[in-house]
Amino acid sequence: MQDIMLEVTDLTVNFRNDDTEYTVVNSISFQVKKGETLGLVGESGCGKSVTSLSIMRLVPTPPGRIASGEIRYKGTNLLSLKEKEMNAVRGNEISMIFQEPMTSLTPVFTIGRQLDEVILLHTDLSKKAAKAKSIEMLKLVGIPRAEEIYSSYPHELSGGMRQRVMIAIGLACEPQLLIADEPTTALDVTIQAQILDLMRELKEKTDTSILFITHDLGVVAEMCDRVIVMYAGEIVEEADVDTLFHDPKHPYTCGLLESIPSMHEKKHRLFSIGGQVPAAGSIQMGCRFRDRCSKAFDRCEKEDPELVPLSSGHFCRCWLYAEQGGRS
């Protein structure tokens, strides 16, 4: 299929701590289509960041280990590439924006140098052309006085500016797929709005596919076409953005949506999901959400639910919908 940029199949990532190995990401599969923004939501520790690092093959090994699965980018399995070939993919084809704009830039080099470096590494441009391209990129991400910023150091910039620079670096080689790992979490609301706006604009211009990882459902609603909800290393629900927010099926998704304080209606009490995310390694059998689920029943404890299709493009991992999924 031509329009599938990235296809992750049965990806399992384990982390070793002491002598026990924990499954952090458990057999997840998803696809990112061309020009699509796929949201990956979940609470901290659900494995969403590990998933993104696995795609870039940046999982720290050890303690991490990609135990099984395939990550196909335009048909080639990234996991079977040699390190050198993978380096050509990173930055060139797939690039990544990290959460911390403060620490992702080297403090001792100028913005321009860091940007040039990426461009020189992945293209055959001359130094002069690289500089021109860098400044063009800085302008593209809406940085005023781009020439001046080009020769300044990261600490001279504010958080929002740094994140713009990170995006500029991420987009410098016109990647086909951009992985954004919580790109706005460290930013203020007004700056977040600017950055999200910028990303939307750039996406329309370049038709890049984006894998957008966040814990903020509001950001997902604004940015994404399709959403995957992860819980404790598994995909619990997958749907297009409209369906997910207006017809969520999985009790976890429902709970998450209900527990956000709304700007529009005043509730006296918020709905809250009791308990905590189970610790990695403590999961034995059955549904991982069952301890916190208000609708849990016998079967949830005994059997692992499967991710079943409910309607086209809407999948849910819950025994409540197992029958329905089986029928359709």
């Binding site: 609301v189 007004t190 977040q192 709005a193 700007m263």
Partner: peptide, 25 residues
């Protein structure tokens, strides 16, 4: 006003007017 408009809402259907602030604090 701009602060309130900048908050992303968990509702994809609700497209609202956004007052985008330029520049930084």
């Amino acid at each position: 006003k701009s602060l309130l408009s900048a908050i992303p809402t968990a509702d994809p259907r609700q497209k609202k007017e956004r007052i985008l602030l330029r520049g930084e604090v």
